[in-house]
Amino acid sequence: MRLVRVLVLVVGFLCAGLPLAWMALSSVKERADTIAQHPKVLPFATTTPAPESLVFAPTTGSWSELAVVHAGAQASFWEHLGNSVLIGVLSTLCSVVLGTACAYGFSRFRVPGEKDWLFFVLSTRFMPPLAVVVPVLLMYRQLDLAGTHLGLVLLYTVFNLSLSVWLMKGFLDEIPRAFEEAAMVDGYTRAQAFVRVVLPEARTGMAVTAVFCLISAWNEYGFAMTLNSSGAVTVPAYFAGLAGNIEGMPWPQVAAGAIVFVAPIVVFTVLVRKHLLRGMTFGTIKQ
């Protein structure tokens, strides 16, 4: 049994980790080495190695070429990353602020139809982007929002509200009401009690919620490619756009860009690892 357990874990670990390690390795190769017939595994060559050799000469060329505008794209990787950061951060801020306020309302007051509203909020998460994007696109064209940062910020804010409301409701429900009641006895108004007593207590919850909102905005592709195909293009849509490139895929640059793009997500995953379960299940499982 012990042997089986170790074997399962080793194979699982390799399957999860190897593609990422291979990506890191690809980012320091010449393009020819990324599509070589024989795998290039060891970055130690000093002279030009034989074609069937496992050794290759490492280069940082792909990293400096992240600033290059490739055929089929309008801007460099860094500029697209800037779009992703701007859209991700702004929409996350809006989602967390609106979601926290809404969750506080549902957590502390009796709202008519509360349960129906909460389940309506949750069900909006299940809409397939491709099935709702056409009316949004036609609406955005009227309002000149297609291909703008603002358009995607607005859309991602709304898209993440379900996550933010449900997660924050879970966190706020855990803060004893006695805290605010005591503050209000001391002469605070409800709003002051919320800002000075509840919000500091909810800091962890808000940070965790923000991380999950940011990740889902960061990774989103369906809306990004259909609404913002020409302006304010985010990284996933930019990479996908390179696939039709006549010069062939610039694999080392894609690998280098992908590493830059996923690195913050890996860091965040480590930071919120204790809350992963909660975040991934909209707070329906708490542990």
Binding site: S26, I215, N219, A240
Partner: peptide, 20 residues
């Protein structure tokens, strides 16, 4: 943590990389 990382990544970007 290593085992959990893949689910946090962008499917569009990782899908493209998997095609390599």
């Amino acid at each position: 943590t290593t085992l959990l990382v893949p689910m946090m990544l962008s499917p569009a970007v990782m899908g493209l990389y998997w095609s390599l």
